[in-house]
Amino acid sequence: MYAKSKVAQVDRPIEVPILGEWISLGDIDDASPAVGGMFVLRAMTAKERRGWSVADIVGTAQHRARTHDGHSTRALTSVQSPTVEQFAADAIGWLLARGLIGPTAEAQHGPYWMLTSDGMAAAERGSVTHIEASMRLHAELHPLLDVSARPNFERGDYAIAVLAATQKVEVHVREAAGLGKGKVGVNLMREAFKVGGPLADAGEVPAEQEAVLSLFVGAIGAFKNPTSHRTVEYDSPIEAASIIHLADLLLRIIDRAKVRRAAEVSDE
Rank of each mutant, 00 (worst) to 15 (best):
Ser72Leu: 09
Glu175Gln: 13
Val205Asp: 08
Arg12Lys: 14
Glu268Asn: 09
Val205His: 11
Thr116Gln: 09
Gly70Val: 05
Ala200Glu: 07
Glu264Ser: 10
Lys183Met: 12
Glu124Thr: 12
Leu145Asn: 00
Ala192Met: 09
Leu96Ile: 11
Pro151Glu: 08
Val169Gln: 11
Gly196Thr: 05
His71Tyr: 10
Ala159Tyr: 04
Gly197Asp: 08
Tyr2Pro: 15
Ala75Met: 12
Pro13Arg: 04
Gly203Ser: 10
Gln80Ile: 02
Val84Ala: 03
Thr77Lys: 03
His63Phe: 13
Leu215Trp: 09
His142Arg: 03
Lys181Pro: 01
Leu215Cys: 01
Glu15Lys: 14
Glu191Asp: 14
Asp157Gly: 02
Glu233Ala: 12
Val147Ser: 11
Tyr234Cys: 05
His142Gln: 06
Asn152His: 11
Ala61Ile: 08
Gly185His: 06
Ala97Asp: 13
Ala247Lys: 00
Asp29Ile: 06
Thr77His: 10
Gly180Val: 05
Ala89His: 04
Arg49Ala: 15
Trp113Asp: 00
Ile254Cys: 00
Phe87Met: 02
Val79Asn: 10
Pro143Gln: 01
Ile253Ser: 07
Met38Tyr: 01
Ala121Met: 02
Pro33Phe: 00
Ser81Phe: 01
Gly70Glu: 05
Ile160Gln: 10
Tyr234Gly: 05
Val265Trp: 03
Tyr2Glu: 15
Pro17Phe: 09
Leu215Thr: 07
Ala149Leu: 08
Glu15Gly: 05
Val10Met: 08
Pro206Arg: 04
Ala257Met: 04
Pro13His: 01
Arg42Ala: 14
Ala211Gly: 07
Ala159Lys: 06
Asn225Glu: 11
Glu15Pro: 00
Thr77Glu: 11
Ala91Gln: 03
Leu144Trp: 07
Asp255Met: 08
Ile253Gln: 12
Asn152Thr: 03
